[in-house]
Computed example of a mutant assay.
Amino acid sequence: MPASPPPVLPDERLAAGAARLAIRHTGRFAPETVQRLLTDSYLRLAAPAQVRTHLVVLAERFAAERLDALAHVEGAPGSGLPRVLFVCSHNAGRSQLAAALLAHRAAGRVAVSSAGTHPAGEVEPFVAEVLTEAGADVADAFPKPLTDEVVRAADIVITMGCGDACPIVPGRRYLDWPVPDPDGAPIAVVRAIRDDIDTRITDLLASLPA
Score class of each variant (00 low, 15 high):
Arg94Asn: 02
Ala71Gly: 05
Arg52Phe: 08
Pro178Trp: 00
Pro48Gln: 15
Ala153Leu: 07
Val84Cys: 08
Thr33Leu: 11
Val57Trp: 12
Ala206Cys: 05
Leu43Ser: 10
Ile156Gln: 03
Ala154Glu: 04
Val189Ala: 11
Arg44Trp: 15
Pro182Gln: 00
Ala99Arg: 04
Val8Met: 11
Ser114His: 10
Arg105Gln: 08
Arg66His: 07
Lys144Leu: 13
Pro7Asp: 12
Lys144Ala: 13
Glu60Lys: 04
Arg20Asn: 01
Ala18Arg: 12
Ala115Asp: 09
Asp148Tyr: 06
Ala210Ser: 15
Ala141Met: 00
Ala141Asn: 02
Ala111Tyr: 03
Arg61Gln: 14
Ala188Lys: 03
Pro6Lys: 04
Ile168Cys: 09
Ala165Gly: 11
Leu204Ile: 00
Arg28Pro: 07
Ile156Glu: 02
Ala128Met: 05
Thr39Ser: 15
Leu9Ala: 08
Phe126Pro: 01
Leu85Gln: 10
Ser95Thr: 05
Pro143Lys: 08
Leu37Ser: 13
Ile201Tyr: 01
Leu101Thr: 09
Ala106Tyr: 10
Ala103Ile: 09
Pro6Tyr: 04
His104Arg: 11
Phe62Leu: 14
Asp137Trp: 04
Arg173Pro: 03
Pro82Ser: 11
Ala115Gly: 10
Arg83Phe: 07
Leu37Thr: 13
Ala3Gln: 09
Ser41Asn: 12
Ala106His: 04
His25Arg: 15
His54Ile: 10
Val110Ile: 13
Arg13Glu: 12
Ala210Thr: 15
Ala134Glu: 05
Ile201Cys: 02
Phe62Asn: 14
Ala22Phe: 12
Ser207Arg: 10
Ala139Gln: 12
Gly161His: 08
Thr117Gly: 03
His118Val: 14
Pro48Tyr: 14
Ala153Asn: 06
Arg20Lys: 06
Asp196Glu: 12
Asp11Pro: 00
Phe29Glu: 01
Val138Gln: 00
Ala3Phe: 07
Ser113Cys: 06
Phe62Glu: 14
Thr159Gln: 05
Val189Cys: 06
Ala69Leu: 02
Leu58Lys: 14
Val51Ile: 14
Pro119Tyr: 11
Val169Gly: 02
Ala47Asp: 15
Pro82Met: 10
Cys88Met: 00
Val123Asn: 02
His118Cys: 13
Pro6Leu: 06
Ala59Asp: 06
Ala22Thr: 14
Pro5Cys: 00
Ala76Cys: 11
Gly78Leu: 05
Ala18Gln: 13
Glu12Phe: 12
Cys162Asn: 08
Arg36Glu: 15
Leu9Pro: 06
Pro167Asn: 15
Ala188Gln: 07
Gln96Ile: 01
Glu60Gln: 07
His25Lys: 13
Glu12Gly: 07
Asp183Gly: 11
Arg109His: 11
Gln35Ala: 14
Arg172Asp: 05
Asp11Ile: 09
Val73Gly: 00
Val34Glu: 13
